[in-house]
Design a binder for these strands. Structure first.
Lengths: 251, 251
DNA sequence: GTACATTGCGTCAAAATAACACACATGATA
DNA sequence: TATCATGTGTGTTATTTTGACGCAATGTAC
């Protein structure tokens, strides 16, 4: 696929790429969808390029659909990275070598690149990680155990998480990361994981329910150790409303 | 200047530009620095291009320095705009016509452009708006009276203001927009203007002083109608600290 | 002086927050 | 079967923060 782009580079916006930080939540861990490329022995964020006839947001959605097989995902642009030295001659050449593309033909790829960062929140269980080609490995990796990444992808990932952490104070999070039915303790773990901070159980319940985006179901989680916790769903309508209007207005 | 770039386009990142929303505050109004170009009868945001050997942040700083004659300005990237149709063939051709550049040589300029938006906060009285060339008009315009802008610049401006409004809940603002000595009512007007909302005088004083970033001076504003208000400065050190750590943590 | 607008400081009730106590359910263990 | 450990649901309390005010002080205009 990348090879196809390289050979038809005139159809793509030059020097511009998209990188997606795709977050999922599972086993009380925040996971990131990463790709191990065959070109180099390092991991990378799933990314892509911008067709000349496509909006950048659409290009990001495309990357996401291709990689997770999912539609209607929560996706947000958070920053654009454009240090001169973020490009790494070594990486570019490794890719060209791999595809056996001569230097001249690969010039489009080894030019300076600026990349637009998007982060996505997806339901771990519904996403089906898709390889770009057979040599690739695509995997959910705990955000605390992310290995070395190519180029400045670690910086991009960190910035994404930082943004998410900030946005937690401005908007509700969870609808996109949790299964349809979930428990308050699960939601709390999600918050704790993102914030990297312990929260008081009882105060969390009060605050989260006061937002008014939760529906308490007449149903308890089954097959669990200890007392069975209640199940909840999000009230989609109110959730969207709070998403739009924001949480703590501050002033 | 633009002509120089057009004739040396191989030294610039293709299809990528920088646009700056430069905010100032004066007469209790939030002002935006706008440019009326000679190419078209419309206003635009001050912008520029990205030299191949310059970081995008540096390119943004350059635009700002050139336009305000100021150093060390508060500058923040807030979003990147890349709809396909944000480019407007009409505008590109108008510019080429103006410079009498033949279509072929101007191809670099009429290609699809993606633009990175930065917003800046500057001290209105210290900034000295600088023309790019003699045909240009550069002016501070009240944000409530912004005329029609080229391309999607209105959208960019709106997004910048929206971002600033949100960030008001996360960080202190004022150090960059007010003169060194200022009064609480002035600071309040700034907040009210940005938020487009009236605040209670007495509650504002309490909240703003509780943040701990203000130094009350033993000095009152002179030559004013009515009771002379006290003068304050920002405690730079604490201000920076709050800027870094954020305001209302929420969780 | 008086009228008027604006500033500085203070009050008070309501709401939000932080810290904590206790009872309940369930699987594991004795 | 009784007890324990662990995580859950609900409630209480003191403290802090917020929102909505009152009022005196200070300056200009007349």
């Amino acid at each position: 696929m990348l090879k196809g782009i390289l050979l038809n580079s005139e159809n793509y916006q030059p020097g511009l790429s998209i990188d997606c930080v795709i977050f999922g939540f599972h086993d009380n861990q925040l996971k990131v969808l990463l790709i191990k490329t065959p070109y180099e022995n390092k991991w990378s964020l799933p990314g892509g390029f911008v067709p000349l006839n496509q909006d950048i947001d659409t290009a990001a959605v495309t990357v996401l659909n291709e990689r997770t097989g999912m539609q209607g995902i929560f996706l947000r642009q958070f920053a654009t990275f454009g240090r001169v030295k973020r490009n790494d001659q070594h990486f570019g050449n490794a890719v060209l070598d791999y595809f056996k593309i001569p230097e001249e033909a690969g010039k489009w790829f080894t030019q300076r690149f600026v990349t637009i960062g998007y982060y996505a929140l997806v339901d771990f269980l519904k996403a089906v990680p898709q390889k770009g080609n057979n040599q690739e490995i695509i995997e959910w990796i705990d955000h605390k155990e992310v290995p070395e990444l190519i180029l400045d992808h670690k910086e991009i990932l960190d910035k994404a998480l930082d943004t998410l952490r900030t946005e937690l104070n401005l908007m509700p999070v969870g609808y996109n990361l949790l299964p349809e039915k979930f428990t308050i303790p699960e939601l709390q773990k999600l918050y704790e994981t993102i914030l990297d901070k312990k929260l008081d159980r009882r105060n969390f319940l009060r605050k989260i329910t006061n937002i008014g985006i939760l529906n308490k179901l007449d149903e308890k989680k089954s097959n669990v150790a200890h007392k069975a916790p209640n199940l909840y769903t999000f009230d989609k309508e109110k959730y969207e409303e709070v998403l739009k209007n924001g949480l703590n207005q501050g002033w």
